[in-house]
């Protein structure tokens, strides 16, 4: 066994800074994914074939190709076409947000379809406009049912976020890698990064449970 944590101590603040970097882009990605996902899900259940087609094609593309490929296309290939020098943060947020939207839209679509059709009819019979019906009647019930699946998606996204290390974004993973290269010791920094990822997911899980409990107060 050749473990020595003493050398890594000076580097710990450097690694910890990665938490902020990771959380920052993960939370923005989740918001983008959720927002776009809801819109795509609504497209999928609409009567307009063109919107349904668009949302299905979108989902097919983003689910059908590797996330790392999408990330690289946005970061490395888009500048080649447009000449716009995109930042690592923006690339990461776009790739993860757009990718997550594809998964989220499927989860939400399933959630909406699982809400009793009578709810729609009751709202319609009261003269409630479509937007209000979706926002106040259907989506709250759908979200309640799909919360575990959504949390799952957010957890996956949090962990997959380590992929941004490949485009040089200074997240937790990248920092652990840098420290490892500096010290010629990889186990210790990676172990620390691993523990931090686990804690983040643990907290996320707890938040999810809390939300679930709150949403179940009407049961």
């Amino acid at each position: 066994m050749n473990l020595d944590f003493s050398q890594i101590v000076p580097y710990i603040p450097f690694i910890l800074k990665g938490i902020g970097a990771t959380l920052q882009f993960v939370s923005v990605s989740i918001i983008i994914g959720l927002f776009l996902g809801i819109i795509l899900a609504l497209f999928k259940i609409m009567k307009k074939p063109i919107l349904r087609w668009f949302a299905d094609a979108y989902t097919s593309i983003f689910r059908g190709t590797p996330l790392i490929l999408q990330l690289w296309i946005i970061y490395f290939a888009v500048p080649q076409l447009s000449g716009y020098d995109i930042s690592a943060f923006l690339s990461a947020v776009l790739a993860f947000g757009l990718n997550s939207a594809a998964y989220v839209s499927e989860i939400i679509r399933a959630g909406i379809l699982a809400v009793d059709k009578g709810q729609t009819e009751a709202a319609e019979a009261l003269g409630v406009p479509y937007k209000s019906m979706m926002a106040n009647i259907i989506l709250p019930q759908a979200i309640k049912n799909i919360l575990p699946a959504l949390m799952n998606e957010f957890i996956t996204l949090t962990k997959e976020s380590a992929l941004v290390a490949t485009i040089g974004y200074l997240d937790l993973m990248r920092r652990a890698q840098i420290v490892g290269a500096d010290l010629y010791r990889n186990f210790e920094p990676l172990l620390i990064a691993g523990v931090i990822y686990w804690v983040m997911v643990f907290v996320l899980t707890k938040i999810g449970r809390m939300l679930e409990r709150r949403l179940r107060k009407s049961d």
Partner: peptide, 26 residues
């Protein structure tokens, strides 16, 4: 007004909110 066989109350709202939702919204 319409009343359904299976009620179709909004389960995530209190009884009062069920009654006041449409008047407020519509």
């Amino acid at each position: 007004g319409m009343v359904f066989q299976h009620f179709h109350l909004f389960p995530h709202m209190t009884v009062l909110d069920n009654v006041t939702y449409a008047p407020i919204k519509v």
